[in-house]
Amino acid sequence: MRSAIDAQFARYAARRVGLLVVSLLGVSVVTFGIVNVLPGDVALLILGNRASPERLEALRQSLGLNRPIWIRYLDWLGGVLTGDMGESLRFGDPVARLIVQRLPASAFLAGAAVVIAVTVAIPLGVVAGQARNTWKDFTTSVVAFTGISLPDFFWGLVLILVFAEFFSVLPPSGYVNPAVDPIGGLRHVALPALSLGFALMAHLTRMTRSSLIEELRAGYVRLARSKGVSERDIVYRHALRNAFLPVLTVIGLQIGFLFSGIVIIEQVFAYPGLGRLAFQALLNRDTTLIQGSVLTIATVFMLSNLIVDLLYAVLDPRVQTGGGA
């Protein structure tokens, strides 16, 4: 029976990975297409307005801009698959290297934000869900609602004001590699991660609360009561695992929003991550860098959703036998 289930899981995982590959191809087409049909001549951008038409034409020729778009796409895609995303028009450095330099900082920031959000949100949501319609529930709801309503950069400003300016306990900006200096790394990531994770935390708290309330009404909870299981075990052993499933889905989807949050938060905290890189690339019309960062962000988003889907299948035994699409 066990091996049958494992085989089923492998099939399910294979299907999800196949879907991921197809989706990534789609993303690459869209990214490349949008960046390349945007108005603005790359050659003009590089050489400036006063360049002579001959020089512009020569540069286009050497950059291969005169070739049909689909040839350029395949060329680019081939490069991406071998780890070559071209060179940044602005910095002259290979795009891949720029991204590899910046990605760990952003991943650390996003990971920290998710960890903070989940560890706070689940217990809070459980307390609120269990103590429905009491002051505890009410307080949690108000805090959560405020958290969702205000944008993350606002929390960034508040946190800088309180912890960096007023108490001077945490640095207001910068980044230290946690692999080199763990304490310094954590100190630097604390404020941006908190401001980034606050909205997610609020969202997850509300989700956990409503999901738990729903599960506590389910038939299996009544059965558990009828067999004499304590209320504590009913919540933690029975209801919470089921209540966590929809929360997990939300986490997966929210990671996408987290990355748009990162673009702004990294500006606010002068944090040298991928978001800042993408933002600069956008300002500079650095097309190769834009393509590279967007594709990277999309890949990270899809990978995290893949992980969530697989985790979901582990937590919910019904998923794999669902068959079909």
């Binding site: 038939g219 299996y220 059965l223 009561r225 009828s226 004499g228 089921n242 035994p317």
Partner: peptide, 24 residues
């Protein structure tokens, strides 16, 4: 009450599909 339910009584419900915990 918990002990009473645990040792003196048992209950069978109408809809078996929603009465068992799906993740256990």
């Amino acid at each position: 009450l918990r002990e009473f339910r645990a040792s003196n009584t048992g209950m069978v419900f109408q809809d078996p599909t929603t009465t068992l915990n799906p993740t256990m």
